[in-house]
């Protein structure tokens, strides 16, 4: 039984406070969803939890089974059992999946004799074409293939807690289902605790959350059961200070003064 406890977490980027006191506890086997308008701090939360450079934690604590994660470097947090499935998985030219996973296992003296078999097995479970296994990490992969690749790594690394940032972006319906089923299976087989970060409720139809939290202006302003996601689908985030209008078919239209590019802009840029 593992437990990730986030208490009073505040963080800034370039002097601007993005997280303004986040409290959240995720236990093994649970699926939590964080939803919220653009700019609420969802991706910042995921990056701060993994210690991405450029984010300054100004207050609060993050503990995994009592161990202070904030005192650790990123790689140590990963070794401690935290996994981040990235919204935009980075291309790493010339570095293979196998090289990376071997290096990760070696750093913790985990045995990796059956690494290749394990990778193949995971690829099969989520319908990830084996030909992609030879490619350098994320290079020349479509958006959906990148997300499958992230899920595959989750399966091989078997973390305690996984943070999945916009896992659904780039995935078609079939792929979304396979990936969701794999993660759901991990919550049962490996007792994985999951924090999914998503803007839309589409993902949550496949991966049913135990708890849904609304993050707005750097704080969790409302928590509830899976029905909260359905409610947000209807009402949008306007009530939470977001500029989003109700979602139509999982899409939203441009707001006044907003350009198309703004919808995809990195809030930190």
């Amino acid at each position: 039984m593992s437990e990730l406890i986030i208490t009073g977490l505040r963080a800034s980027v370039g002097g601007t406070e993005i997280l303004r006191g986040v409290d959240l506890t995720i236990r093994s086997g649970e699926v939590h969803a964080i939803m919220g308008p653009n700019g609420a701090g969802k991706s910042t939360l995921s990056h701060v939890l993994l210690g991405k450079p450029g984010y300054e934690v100004t207050a609060g604590s993050v503990k995994l089974d009592g161990v202070d994660l904030l005192a650790m470097e990123t790689w140590q947090r990963a070794q401690a059992g935290l996994f981040l499935g990235m919204q935009y998985p980075t291309e790493v030219p010339g570095v293979s999946l196998l090289d990376m996973l071997n290096a990760s296992f070696a750093a913790n003296q985990r045995l990796s004799d059956d690494m290749v078999a394990s990778i193949r097995h995971e690829a099969e479970r989520i319908g990830f074409d084996e030909k992609f296994l030879q490619r350098p990490l994320n290079v020349d992969l479509s958006g959906g293939e990148k997300k499958r690749n992230e899920t595959l790594q989750l399966g091989v690394l078997r973390p305690k807690i996984a943070i999945l940032d916009e896992l659904d972006s780039g995935l078609d319906v079939d792929a979304l289902r396979m990936v969701s089923q794999r993660i759901e299976a991990a919550t049962e087989e490996d007792n994985l605790g999951v924090l999914v970060i998503t803007h839309y409720s589409r993902l949550l139809e496949e991966l049913r959350p135990d708890r849904v939290h609304v993050l707005a202006k750097g704080q969790i302003v409302k928590s509830g059961g899976a029905e909260l996601a359905d409610e947000l689908e209807e009402t949008g985030y306007a009530a939470y200070g977001g500029n989003d209008e109700p979602l139509v078919d999982g899409k939203r239209s441009l707001q006044d003064g907003e350009t198309f590019a703004d919808m995809f802009a990195d809030p930190l840029a």
């Binding site: 993994l50 991405k52 790689w75 990963a78 981040l84 990235m86 570095v95 990376m100 290096a103 750093a107």
Partner: peptide, 17 residues
């Protein structure tokens, strides 16, 4: 960051990159 986030230590990550 990508390699670190998968548990690869900094020196090893730079070697791979």
């Amino acid at each position: 960051f990508y390699l670190h986030a998968r548990g690869v230590p900094p020196v090893e990550a730079d070697k791979l990159i």
